[in-house]
C-alpha cells in the first residue's frame, strides 16, 4: 500500500507539472495580445508604448523564463498580479470562489441526495413502465442544455412570480436565507445532469449487486425486497457512487461557467470568461491551474479512498 501511494504521488507530481505547462502554453498560444487590448481600440498606439507596456508586464522575456518565474512564485503561494485591476490574483480568486463553491456544493447535495432514492426506485421497478419512464427522464436530464434550461426557467418564473428577487448573489453571512433563495434555481439547473448520472449509476450498481450470491442468500432468507435493496445492495453500490462524485466535481465547474452567466452570479466562471476576453494571462493561468489541480487532487483522494473501500483492490 505504501509503495502504491508513493508511485501514485510521483505520478501526481508529473500530472500537475504537465497541467501547469499545458495551461501556460495554451494561454500563450491564444491569438490576440494582452497589450493590444489594454491599450484599447480607439487610441494612439505607438510601438514604444506597446514595448514599454510589454516589458512592464514581463511579456518580452523568453517563454521558459516566464514559465519559471510563474511556477516558482506560484509554489511559494504568489500567483501574480491581475493585469487590469492590479490586485493580487489570489485576492481576485478569493473574492470569486465562494459563490462557485456554494453553488457547486448545493448542486451536488441536491443531485446526489435525490439520486439515491431515485436509483433505488428505478432498480426496484426494473423493466416496468415506471422504470422506463424514469430512465427516459434521466436521459433527458443528462442531455438538456443547461444554458437553455436556465433562461427558460428564469422566463417562466418571471411570468409566474414577477416580484421574485432571484438574480445576483448575496453573501451567506449577510443574509443566509436570501443567499440560499437566490442559489436554489441555479443549483437545480446545475444539479440535473448529476442527478441523472448518479441515479443511473445507483440503479446499475444495485442491479449488479442484486444478481450476486450474497443477495440471493439474503433474499432466500425471506428478507423483504426493500430491505434487501437498502441493507445489502446499496452499501455495495456506494463504492462507484463515491468514485463518480470525484468526476462530477470536474463537470460542476464547466457547468457553473454557463449557469453563473445566466443567473448573474459573480463566481469563478465569470472570472474565467472575463479573463479570457481580456487576455488577463496571470489571472487566467492561476484560475485554470487551481481548478485543474483541485480536480486532480480530489480524484487522487477518491482513488485512494476507493482502494480502501474495496478490499479486492487493496493489494
Amino acid at each position: 500500500m505504501t509503495r502504491l501511494v508513493l508511485t501514485r504521488l510521483v505520478d501526481l507530481a508529473f500530472v500537475l507539472l504537465g497541467v501547469s505547462l499545458l495551461v501556460f502554453c495554451m494561454i500563450r498560444l491564444i491569438p490576440g495580445d494582452a497589450v493590444a487590448i489594454m491599450l484599447g481600440a480607439n487610441t494612439d498606439v505607438t510601438p514604444e508604448k506597446v514595448a514599454a507596456l510589454r516589458s512592464r508586464i514581463g511579456l518580452d522575456q523568453p517563454l521558459l523564463t516566464q514559465y519559471w518565474h510563474w511556477i516558482s512564485a506560484a509554489l511559494r503561494g504568489d500567483l501574480g498580479t491581475s493585469l487590469w485591476t492590479g490586485r493580487p490574483v489570489g485576492e481576485e480568486i478569493a473574492s470569486h470562489i465562494w459563490p462557485t463553491v456554494q453553488l457547486s456544493v448545493l448542486a451536488l447535495v441536491i443531485g446526489a441526495g435525490l439520486a439515491v432514492p431515485a436509483g433505488c426506485v428505478m432498480a426496484s421497478l426494473r423493466g416496468r413502465a415506471a422504470d422506463v419512464a424514469m430512465r427516459l427522464a434521466s436521459v433527458a436530464g443528462l442531455t438538456i442544455p443547461s444554458f437553455w434550461l436556465g433562461i427558460v426557467l428564469i422566463l417562466v418564473l418571471a411570468t409566474l412570480a414577477p416580484s421574485l428577487q432571484m438574480l445576483g448573489y448575496v453573501p451567506f453571512w449577510q443574509d443566509p436565507l436570501d443567499n440560499l433563495a437566490r442559489l436554489v434555481l441555479p443549483a437545480v439547473c446545475l444539479s440535473l445532469p448529476i442527478l441523472a448520472n448518479l441515479s443511473r449509476l445507483v440503479r446499475s450498481a444495485l442491479l449488479e449487486a442484486l444478481g450476486q450470491d450474497y443477495i440471493r442468500t439474503a433474499r432466500a432468507k425471506g428478507l423483504g425486497e426493500w430491505r434487501v435493496l437498502y441493507r445489502h445492495a446499496l452499501a455495495n453500490a456506494m463504492i462507484p457512487f463515491v468514485t463518480s462524485l470525484g468526476i462530477q466535481t470536474g463537470y460542476l465547474l464547466g457547468g457553473a461557467i454557463v449557469v453563473e452567466q445566466v443567473f448573474a452570479i459573480p463566481g469563478l466562471g465569470q472570472l474565467i470568461l472575463g479573463a479570457i476576453g481580456d487576455r488577463n494571462y496571470p489571472l487566467l493561468q492561476a484560475v485554470i491551474l487551481l481548478v485543474t489541480s483541485g480536480f486532480v487532487l480530489v480524484n487522487f483522494g477518491v482513488d485512494l479512498l476507493y482502494r480502501l473501500l474495496d478490499p479486492r483492490l487493496r493489494d
Partner: peptide, 18 residues
C-alpha cells in the same frame, strides 16, 4: 450598478422591479 451579462436576465430584472 449590478453586473448581469445575460440580456434575458436583465429584462426580467427590470420587469420584476429588482
Amino acid at each position: 450598478f449590478n453586473i448581469v451579462p445575460e440580456s434575458a436576465t436583465r429584462q426580467v430584472g427590470i420587469t420584476s422591479g429588482q
